[in-house]
Design a protein around this nucleic acid. Sequence first.
DNA 1: TATGAATGAGCTTTCATTCAT
DNA 2: CATGAATGAAAGCTCATTCAT
Lengths: 214, 214, 214, 214
Amino acid sequence: MQAPQDTKPRWERRKDARPQELLAAALEQFVERGYAATRLEDVARRAGVSKGTLYLYFTNKEELFKAVVRENIVQAIGEAEQDAAVFEGHSGELLRTILMAWWDEICTTHLAGITKLMLSEGQNFPELAKFYNEEVVKRGSDLITSVLVRGIGRGEFRAVDPAVMTPVLIAPVMMLMMWTNSFMPACEMPPIDPHAFMDTFIGTTLGGLEAPAA
Amino acid sequence: MQAPQDTKPRWERRKDARPQELLAAALEQFVERGYAATRLEDVARRAGVSKGTLYLYFTNKEELFKAVVRENIVQAIGEAEQDAAVFEGHSGELLRTILMAWWDEICTTHLAGITKLMLSEGQNFPELAKFYNEEVVKRGSDLITSVLVRGIGRGEFRAVDPAVMTPVLIAPVMMLMMWTNSFMPACEMPPIDPHAFMDTFIGTTLGGLEAPAA
Amino acid sequence: MQAPQDTKPRWERRKDARPQELLAAALEQFVERGYAATRLEDVARRAGVSKGTLYLYFTNKEELFKAVVRENIVQAIGEAEQDAAVFEGHSGELLRTILMAWWDEICTTHLAGITKLMLSEGQNFPELAKFYNEEVVKRGSDLITSVLVRGIGRGEFRAVDPAVMTPVLIAPVMMLMMWTNSFMPACEMPPIDPHAFMDTFIGTTLGGLEAPAA
Amino acid sequence: MQAPQDTKPRWERRKDARPQELLAAALEQFVERGYAATRLEDVARRAGVSKGTLYLYFTNKEELFKAVVRENIVQAIGEAEQDAAVFEGHSGELLRTILMAWWDEICTTHLAGITKLMLSEGQNFPELAKFYNEEVVKRGSDLITSVLVRGIGRGEFRAVDPAVMTPVLIAPVMMLMMWTNSFMPACEMPPIDPHAFMDTFIGTTLGGLEAPAA
DNA sequence: TATGAATGAGCTTTCATTCAT
DNA sequence: CATGAATGAAAGCTCATTCAT
């Protein structure tokens, strides 16, 4: 019994794969050079296609960038939302899972560079900033908030104000992202052990959150 | 009783002030838009002069940027170096003074934006990165290191390795700078009280540094 | 009976011809206006393309100029070098051939204007002057010198000093080039019959060069 | 017996001398760099004045150039015209005198560079070319022609056509001017001994011109 | 008169975007 | 689908010219 899941001829599979290759090339280039400094010609060369081909798949530079974000970060948030929706255990465990997944899937990959990029250049591209806020920042925050509400509702967390608590949970991870992705050449940043950092951070925070045993 | 100290004609006073006005305008524009995205025409308009006028005072965009850094950050470091050289008290007090001055003079002003800018765009402008590292990062680090060495030599600090300790002292301030200066419009960053942060940070660190009372 | 030798689509043929068209337009413009006064926009318009198109084929103005020189003068010198290398007859005949080819291929065409241009503006563009001296002046002189050496070695020429004789051979042709190409509008230069001039010059010089019949 | 002709106070004399200093500086700069490439700022610096001062004396760059030509070349032609008008000897002697003065006063000085400049850049500045042709080329030619007419009328020259003979007399001197003033850096032009050249040229030409002794 | 700061048109060069093939 | 030649708006920089002092 072979694996029949991909019955398309090879060239059609390639056709389907093309956008992914373009997005991967774009991601790398955006992260390396920033949004404004990224030339579409470089993205194209990196993907091994011509400049014009990019425009077959993406309306313009801005849409290309949005697609990169959607295909990666937004999708990851979507999965986290799914996971959270069906999760049945303790809210603390859910929170730990979400934060760790965030770290593993975003922060340790090129995608962290996108966050840095939005922080750096967001002001110059309001349309992108708006998009990023709505699709990433807001959805991510809402997810965290919803877990807090769930935990409080189930008596697993103390009755903190979720609107205040959410940024407290987000901030350290963002800092860690910046830290591991922002460096000038030769600018010796002190090394941070990300795993230790995340462990400590999550442990401490959850400890502070948990409702006292009745 | 008039104040006759400025006997120059109004026109000449303006001429002397011109470079400062240009630098101020440039600083604001660079911080708002970043290095690459700053158009010299906008700097000029902001200063109320024409594009060509900028070139009377600065050779090119790069030199304009360097001048902004020199006139502000480098100068502040120089003053800190002076202060440190003549300081006679406890090294812990000196360290607190330097870090607090750093905060007050750089982090709370537009100048923090320059640091953010170098972190964001440094890779795209190697010449600027080199300049910044030499004139700011290295000199700043050396200053901190020298205070550590002084403290250890005088028995005021434990015998830590200054090369390791220096980035530990620098990192949190830089993070705070990024934090307070990096925001996308409408991106609700969790609020941080900078004074509380600095107090806590300095207090904790100095506590850990100080040599145990004999 | 069709002519199938060019099977490329019209569009591709155009692409291949493009650089030549640009070089031709550039040559005319450079000769008409000089190097500094030539605006790339005019070159482009003359070639029927836009400004940006030039940059698809040539890195910048300087390289465009070098390409014009290479494609025309340097190439002609190369051919003369080839001819000289395989020539088997009397050195006087070779010299006559080279000088006449110089006249026919350079002096009677727009290319003479390039020489005038280098004489006029060379001092203002040291990089171009260096290039021209190495690729044209030196190679051309060396070619003449080598023929002299050949002739002396074969006993066909008297034992003159080739280093002295070479400029004596070059000078009159350059003068003639200047003469026929340097005119202000309405500045009535006395007419010179170039063929008579070249004939007389070559005849006289060869007469003076030839070794006395043993 | 003192020389009372200059009774002005020193500063007023300076005031009168100012235009001459400016013209001298302009001449040097024009000759060194060409017309288009000459920046008025450099002329001013060379004369030790400010850029604005130039505009007190000359309407614009073009008028400055014209003034340089007028003050030097045109004036020399005027003097030659004067001399010719009162000359009483043999026309051949007059011709020799004029040509030699041309050489001594123009060709051996910076002024020869002006001729080269007009030949090189004249096409780009039609207004200047027109001026130069009317004030220099035409007047100079007319002077030579008038001497020929005089000589023929007095039976001292053969009955040549003056319109044909004039350029024959002018051409070699212009060539010599170009030759001694046009050089690319490091471009080894064959040396020409100008005095020998002029002697030979004048001698030969006069020999050919003189009417046979009856 | 003399100054030199200021101007702005004009040039080279870059790059997102289009479109004929 | 894919190409890559072509476009043209925009940005950095220069310099003849003006003008307040």
